[in-house]
């Protein structure tokens, strides 16, 4: 008798199990039912992703969700209790390395090639700290708006871009990302180009030369004389002339003479002090290609 009951129970269970298998509810990989909970609502930006390039990943639909957030089977079963495999917050933020791994799965080349070990990566920043793929417009990809993100943390630059002499950073015409690669590089200050001078020459090709008569510190490092974010002094100079020139030049006669207030218009109106000071004559300060330009006056 007990054997008969056991046999019946076994047959019922087997039938139920087979039925569940057939309907896929016990399949090894359940299909994601993201939209069962994440409905398109006005105050939810979840569905906005489908109007962006990320919305068509793996054919679109819920496959696009799992492409970034992982299969998330546990979350699929008990969404309020279990986080997705990869969550970008706010409730269950995954660690930065996990979140970044999701993005780097596709975006590991180009500007992101040297992300590992970069300053932002060492700060445990993740891609979603700056980017938002659930918005139609990722403001970080717009030059004028992206710098607002940068200045949130790099607050000291916020002051510099309003100094009297500056690049058009505040206007958004020269964005932070025009010079710097926020995803990391092996060069100084995470610049796009391999060296400081190469970075400057990418816009200021007229300074590239080579020149017949060089001004050696110019060829060595533009930052020896200029402060690219902004300066109190004209032409982004670290110091104003003639004093800036006299830091390196002390030749006989006028280069070695101190120029104080005696040289103002109320006094002698000295040509080495007023106007463009040394550059009233030595105008080819970045180098000269003129055969008579040895003194950078031609």
């Amino acid at each position: 008798m007990p054997g008969k009951h056991l046999k019946a129970i076994f047959i019922v269970c087997a039938t139920v199990w087979v039925t569940l298998l057939a309907t896929g509810n016990l399949s090894a990989q359940e299909e994601a039912a993201c939209f069962d909970c994440h409905e398109a609502e006005d105050d939810s930006s979840v569905h906005a992703v489908f109007k962006t390039v990320h919305g068509s990943l793996n054919g679109g639909g819920t496959a696009a969700c799992t492409a970034c957030h992982g299969p998330s089977e546990a979350h699929n079963r008990r969404g309020r209790r279990n986080p997705p495999d990869i969550s970008f917050g706010p409730r269950w933020p995954s660690d930065a390395e996990t979140r970044n791994g999701s993005c780097l799965g596709c975006h590991e080349n180009g500007d992101q090639l040297l992300w590992a070990g970069s300053a932002h990566e060492q700060e445990s920043m993740s891609c979603d700290n700056c980017h938002d793929s659930h918005q139609l417009q990722d403001l970080q990809l717009a030059k004028e708006q992206s710098q607002e993100q940068c200045l949130t943390c790099h607050t000291q630059v916020k002051a510099q871009i309003h100094l009297p002499s500056r690049h058009p950073i505040a206007e958004g015409k020269t964005a932070c990302v025009d010079c710097h690669n926020p995803h990391g590089s092996l060069g100084d200050a995470a610049l796009h180009q391999a060296s400081v001078n190469d970075n400057c020459y990418s816009c200021h090709q007229d300074k590239r030369g080579p020149f017949l008569w060089e001004h050696p510190p110019v060829a060595e490092d533009c930052a020896l004389c200029h402060r690219p974010h902004g300066s109190v002094n004209d032409r982004l100079l670290t110091a104003r002339g003639p004093a800036s020139c006299q830091q390196c030049h002390a030749a006989a006669f006028h280069p070695s003479v101190p120029y104080g207030s005696e040289g103002l218009p109320s006094g002698s109106a000295n040509q080495n002090l007023l106007g463009k000071n040394c550059l009233n004559c030595h105008s080819q300060i970045h180098g000269s290609n003129h055969p008579s330009g040895a003194r950078l006056t031609r």
């Binding site: 104003r240 218009p265 109106a269 000295n270 040509q271 002090l273 007023l274 000071n277 009233n280």
Partner: peptide
């Protein structure tokens, strides 16, 4: 002061 009261013929 580099330009203050510096007319074309001041220097």
């Amino acid at each position: 002061w580099a330009w203050d009261n510096v007319q074309a013929d001041t220097i």
